[in-house]
Design a protein around this nucleic acid. Structure first.
Length: 446
RNA sequence: UCCGGCAUAGCUCAGUCGGUAGAGCGGGUGACUGUUAAUCACCAUGUCCCUGGUUCGAGUCCAGGUGCCGGAGCCA
């Protein structure tokens, strides 16, 4: 018979494999290590649904064909108990999930769950699920979102690495604000105050003057009391910065990057997109060129659609949603916003100094702004003037001004919100679901 | 910070006119040799968010508070 499990498993010559490779072992006896996802049993027959992180498989035990101890172990098994199952792989049309099932020969219960597992296979509300996020991650939809998130980040890194960009990490603890000063998380820093970074951009500008084209990918923190489906207090941002680039080239690389990412998810994460029941035709239309309209044109378009927006106002959420849905499901660039509603470092358009050489990329289906970027001011005097106009503490920006004192060049870049892109590609209702452990205004656990 | 909504079993919710607290799922027990979120029978489960008020009587009505959700502002 088969050896007693735990201490002899290594010497048992059993092949330990994973569910995603099970099709290579048809007819063979292998060992899987996983967790009990679900169980169905009748008097003399038990179906155990095993998950191991790579997939799901149905394992079958007939009372007559297994040891009594194995039968008893199967019967007593509870949801999410961890188990090591050895059995014969066979193709079976009745098997759910992967088309294969495993005839159980031996089972080792690594840890049996006592008491109720909090998450059932029926519906739950979002607040409850978020309070159980550490367990919710085990469900198929959440695993699929995390796999797609991982693929998106890998694709973004590959895109820039393949084009000669250098990855430079930006600091998390900073002394100055990149955007406004009202949205900073303040921390004690020995006898001083410090802040959690809102953006790595200013540091990327310094790095670009050293290395040429660079990017960072890291967390950003905003102490905004925002309670919308597009906001987290901690989110991840990709921030490339490029020298000798203009606004059109900047938008072009954003477009190329996003098309590459969407294409790669379509190619490599079919299974996950199906699990999420994502309408893939909506992703297939994501191909360049993306429409590019000016702020001025956008406001006229919105007014024609019945929006109350006035020239000079920033877009509200409904405005963004309208703009995002005007172009056949493609994202749209809005460029040349009024300088007054944009960040202090945005370079004015030489042809119309009232507007800034910046752009936002608005995603369809109400996901809103997924990228914001543009040209940076490269003139020392103008940058100093803007810092003063915005009542920013000049000393904290001395090093940033230095970049315009020592070999300033035209440059620009952009910031891409990872959670928003993941939410859009996955079709999740809320960015909460696209972060493994989301932080919102009222939630910092788990 | 402002506006709106919600709060009842572990979860999702119902609860009529103010009159003894309910269902489904989950849990437990039992039956069943091909189940697909299995089915069937039985069992157990409550600070009705908190405080105060009205009333013979409050889950229900009133006031205040707390928590959460959605939105605005701000932003990726």
């Amino acid at each position: 018979m088969y050896p007693a499990p735990s201490n002899t498993l290594k010497e048992s010559f059993m092949t330990v494999t994973s569910i995603d490779r099970i099709d290579q072992y048809d007819g063979q006896t292998v060992t899987l290590r996983g967790w009990l996802y679900n169980k169905r049993e009748s008097g003399k027959l038990a179906f155990l649904i095993l998950r191991d992180g790579t997939g799901f498989i149905q394992c079958v035990a007939f009372k007559k064909e297994v040891d009594e101890a194995v039968w008893e172990a199967c019967k007593g098994l509870t949801q999410e108990s961890s188990v090591i199952i050895t059995g014969t792989v066979r193709k079976d049309d009745r098997a759910p999930y992967c088309g294969y099932e495993m005839g159980i020969q031996n089972i080792e219960v690594v840890h049996k769950v006592e008491g109720e597992y909090p998450i059932s296979h029926k519906e739950h509300g979002p607040d409850f699920l978020l309070s159980q996020r550490h367990l919710w991650l085990r469900t198929p939809s959440q695993m699929a979102v995390m796999r797609i998130r991982s693929e998106i980040i890998a694709a973004l890194r590959d895109f820039f690495n393949d084009r000669g960009f250098t990855m430079v990490d930006a600091p998390i603890v900073t002394a100055n604000a990149c955007e406004g000063t009202t949205n900073l998380f303040e921390i004690d820093y020995f006898d001083d105050k410090a802040y959690l970074s809102q953006s790595g951009q200013l540091y990327m500008e310094a790095a670009a003057f050293a290395l040429g084209n660079v990017y960072c990918l890291g967390p950003a923190f905003r102490a905004e009391r925002s309670k919308t489906r597009k906001h987290l207090t901690e989110f991840w941002m990709l921030e490339p910065e490029m020298t000798y680039i203009d606004l059109d080239q900047n938008m072009a690389i954003q477009e190329e990057m996003l098309c590459y990412v969407v294409k790669r998810v379509l190619e490599r994460r079919q299974q996950e997109l199906k699990t999420l029941e994502r309408d893939q035709s909506q992703l297939e239309v994501i191909q360049g060129p993306f429409p590019r309209i000016s702020y001025h044109e956008a406001v006229e378009l919105l007014q024609a659609k019945g929006s109350e927006i006035q020239m000079g106002d920033d877009f509200g959420a409904p405005d963004e949603a309208i703009l995002g849905d005007q172009f056949g499901g493609k994202p749209v660039f809005i460029h040349r916003f009024p300088s007054a509603i944009k960040a202090f470092y945005m370079k004015p358009d030489p042809e119309n100094p009232e507007v800034a050489l910046g752009s936002d990329l608005i995603a369809p289906d109400g996901y809103g702004e997924i990228i914001g970027g543009g040209q940076r001011i490269d003139d020392y005097d103008l940058l100093l003037q803007r810092i003063q106009e915005h009542d920013l503490p000049q000393e904290a920006f001395d090093w940033y001004l230095d970049l315009r004192r020592y070999g300033s060049v035209p440059h620009g870049g952009f910031g891409l919100g990872i959670e928003r892109v993941v939410a859009w590609i996955c079709g999740t209702q809320h960015v909460r679901e696209s972060s493994p452990f989301p932080r919102t205004i009222y939630r910092i656990t788990p």
